[in-house]
Design a protein around this nucleic acid. Structure first.
Lengths: 238, 238
DNA sequence: CACTATACTGTACATACGTACAGTACCGGA
DNA sequence: TCCGGTACTGTACGTATGTACAGTATAGTG
């Protein structure tokens, strides 16, 4: 699941503006969608408590009362964001694993535009422990566990495998959650076209090849090289 | 630095109560220390914005005005927590690398008592980007980079090494930040005597042996086994 | 045209928060 | 004994926040 979004991000690189005011399509969005996206960004960047309805309204260029009109309360707005993220990830995964999804330009474009905020929101939500984060973390961990089971040659005890998957999930979320520091320390935007291969390569270097799986390892490295050369490609471990 | 704290935590296992009201020594602490420790815990668990002075005062069983008396403002209180954490980690590192520190029961006990909140606070602070978090992250990353440079046989380009160190740091912080989910998913307290070896072993399994370094790898695995058998030992990668 | 539902705004209110301030208890030194 | 400083508390105040509510405009429908 996570890898699909990541791959989608990499392959979608080169398209313009991320979510935000600079996007020409921004004003075309319905006010409701604009509020939701803005809330998503604010929650992801500042956390729930530090986010104010008035702040969201100002950033979305609507009145605070309109926020309340569309989403009754602040908490309901957060639940709407949760649902939006879950639905997005689920759809991305479905389309991605189906095979055709990644090739669809519209799909890739949508993923790459939203993914950074969504991933940050995901990490923040899981870290802050919002209701339902448990199930979400477990879902991602289960996905990772299936990947690990397929990649490793001699399967270890189930408990060991689950532990590895959970820890690997936490580590991946760490890369997302602390992506800001990564970007600053490496002096390159981690979520940009030139930054993602750097992080991807480091991930591949750090993780045991048996974890990423021989096939994926080669594929990813090749994709990274291609991407670095031509400005397009797929990357990242599980 | 990070590894030292981790090792200290493992070796300190078996001691009782974590930080909190149940500790008999709790009431013996000065009110100022009690306020600071409580604030540390609240900041770590809820984040800065969601933490209130009144909440801290209630948990520390003092009046809100006393909090203001000792630490002038909420922000100054946070800075005091920052300084406390930094000083603690710095001291832990110094004593840890010196060798004798870890053997000191009092030191180990203090690490164990404080480390869970301290590490969570660290991850939260870095994630929330408090002033100075940049330098802190870079410091930990630099420490990791030195470790990586020593562990790897054929040194890669400096940029690659720095990227690896930064990503590895983010991943380690992820394990800490999402430790709550790890504990729940693995059905064992990640910071307890039986949980730490599980996480440590998973880390060693996931990371490339060249990253952990051959010496440390063997040593850690041996320590984990010993710990699992006798209830004492050292663990964890860089 | 009349009517209704929906999108949207301005204002108002109760609450909770950080902070300031006056005042009390206690404790060590002159 | 007095007395100054420190620890500590109760109360009050300004502000920001979430939310409720009344009201306006606009589009769709009979």
């Amino acid at each position: 699941m996570y890898s699909i979004v990541f791959i989608g991000m990499v392959r979608g690189m080169g398209a313009p503006a991320p979510n935000g005011d600079g996007d020409p399509r921004w004003s075309d969005l319905s006010a409701r969608a604009r509020i939701r996206d803005t809330a998503l960004r604010h929650y992801a960047e500042r956390g729930y408590a530090a986010t104010t309805i008035r702040g969201i309204a100002a950033a979305a260029e609507v009145s605070p009362a309109l926020v309340q009109h569309h989403f009754r309360t602040k908490d309901a707005l957060r639940r709407a964001c949760d649902a939006h993220v879950l639905e997005f990830i689920r759809r991305s995964t479905a389309q991605g694993v189906a095979g055709g999804g990644i090739a669809d330009p519209g799909f890739v474009d949508a993923v790459h535009r939203q993914a950074p905020s969504l991933l940050k929101y995901l990490a923040r939500a899981v870290g802050d422990g919002f209701p339902g984060a448990d199930a979400l973390f477990d879902e991602v961990a289960a996905h990772t566990e299936r990947h690990l089971a397929a990649a490793v040659t001699e399967p270890p005890a189930p408990g060991v495998l689950r532990a590895r998957a959970a820890v690997l999930t936490a580590m991946h979320l760490g890369v997302v959650a602390f992506g800001g520091h990564l970007s600053r320390a490496l002096d390159v935007d981690t979520l940009s076209a030139e930054g993602l291969p750097v992080v991807g390569a480091a991930l591949l270097d750090l993780l045991d090849p048996a974890v990423t799986g021989p096939g994926l390892d080669d594929l990813a490295r090749q994709g990274l090289t291609t991407h670095r050369a031509a400005g397009d490609g797929a990357a990242s471990g599980p």
